[in-house]
Nucleic acid binder design. Sequence first.
DNA 1: ACAGGAATTTATGTCGACATAATTGAATGA
DNA 2: TCATTCAATTATGTCGACATAAATTCCTGT
Lengths: 272, 272
Amino acid sequence: MTTTTFERADSWIATPPSSQSESFLSAVLVVRRIVAEHHDRPSLVSRVACEVGAEIIENVRHSGEDLSSVELAERYETSRTPIREALLLLEKEGLVRIPQRRRPHVAVLDIAEVREIYRVRAVLFGAVASDAATLRTPEDLAALRELLARLSTAHDAQDLSAYLWANVEFYNRLTIAAHNATAKRILDSLLLRTLRLRRLSLSQPTRREKSMAHHVQLMSAIEEQDAPLADVLIRSNHLHALAVLEQIYADGGVPSPMRSRRRRRQAAAATE
Amino acid sequence: MTTTTFERADSWIATPPSSQSESFLSAVLVVRRIVAEHHDRPSLVSRVACEVGAEIIENVRHSGEDLSSVELAERYETSRTPIREALLLLEKEGLVRIPQRRRPHVAVLDIAEVREIYRVRAVLFGAVASDAATLRTPEDLAALRELLARLSTAHDAQDLSAYLWANVEFYNRLTIAAHNATAKRILDSLLLRTLRLRRLSLSQPTRREKSMAHHVQLMSAIEEQDAPLADVLIRSNHLHALAVLEQIYADGGVPSPMRSRRRRRQAAAATE
DNA sequence: ACAGGAATTTATGTCGACATAATTGAATGA
DNA sequence: TCATTCAATTATGTCGACATAAATTCCTGT
């Protein structure tokens, strides 16, 4: 099942998949789901958007790093027009900033914004989980149980990446069960913005422990259709996750944005 | 004060302001605030986006109507590239749909989506109002009181447009007081999507009555820093507003999307 | 008269080019 | 040595052109 998942990721990026890690391919798929939501067929624009977006999420491109359209056009062997559009898609999701007449760059996530995002997510996700607990079908339950099992496996194996992506999938399934596409789109977008930090926060064993326990509790609240409990659990978990991030930021655990003189573009006149 | 407001709206649209109503100029400013948030200087793209966005909100362009990029490029005497970008900005706010390889068109708002939007808004706005009630400064209070007075004046004068825009400004000021830019952006975007319908719902005198009373109550909750009350009031008001819209949709009060054969483009070779 | 399909028209996605703004690098002076 | 100013470089915003996909029209057969 994960296999098919990874196979299908290839068509949404431009570079050969062999060089990519599994985590990166997961990232591509998540980005695709959110940023290329309406693009049913992989187009040039969506490929670029997915790949660059995944690179940002996977911290291949760092906070504040320049995303010059000419540089990207060279790299993807296309003109600047589709690159520009791809960057606009990523800006819409908050991964990229495009100041007028200035070079686009990877958006910088300061703690103030993270705080805001987690506050909004806590409230919205609480409501969504509440609805999901009420509306969930047997199919929803089955899917969620399976994802919980995947989560548990990853947790036992201490596999950070696997845990992270299973986590994302669990929340994804949960938001689907609530049958509110608008809420889902907003939550997805907010998730995307903070995915860069998830690895940091989940790298703490105590955090992973709490997170795992939380998911078990949440699952049972949903099974028992205890909407208020699901709401409170989600909010509490978000508060805790935020506290961890606050700590990490305070300790300087988040690499500060590059004072990006852009890296010299070594004009590789190789292709001739 | 409103005078300066209207004067400044001119620079964000492309056509002469003399032909525009006051309501339309208010619409332009609201669109600008949301869609051209980061564009500090009026650029070609933002002008087009603001004007077309305002036309959608003001129902000058109807649900489902085609927005061909060549047609718009002709009208604004520019090339398709900036038009395309302007349409992308409007799509990001949900006012426009751009299917791949098909003509962009004004987004269609069905009742299911309206329901979703109001649910999300109720929850998020409740939380924001709650924060605003807690955090509000004396300046916030003064500004809100003044807007409440404007609301009351418009209400007494039975001036639908004035009431509508004062309403928008009141909520805008309220979301500012909560000091959560992320939440504000989301709420603004959701508001924009439903602004087209506001006139419908507020055209009912009973609805206006309820709305006015609601604002008075809300204002006092904020003055007294009664966060839970502010939360509940907002939610309740949104539920009521939604109920009115459900009724209007059920009665067929919302013009159904044009089966838009696009209007024949009478090639006006006038400019020679 | 009408439905269905081929031919024509029109729009989109992408490209390379240009003018102009921003950025880098060099040169000057304290 | 460092800050400041000016020239050179590089990137952006916009444009018109082209290939190709949709939409529309026209034509044919029933």
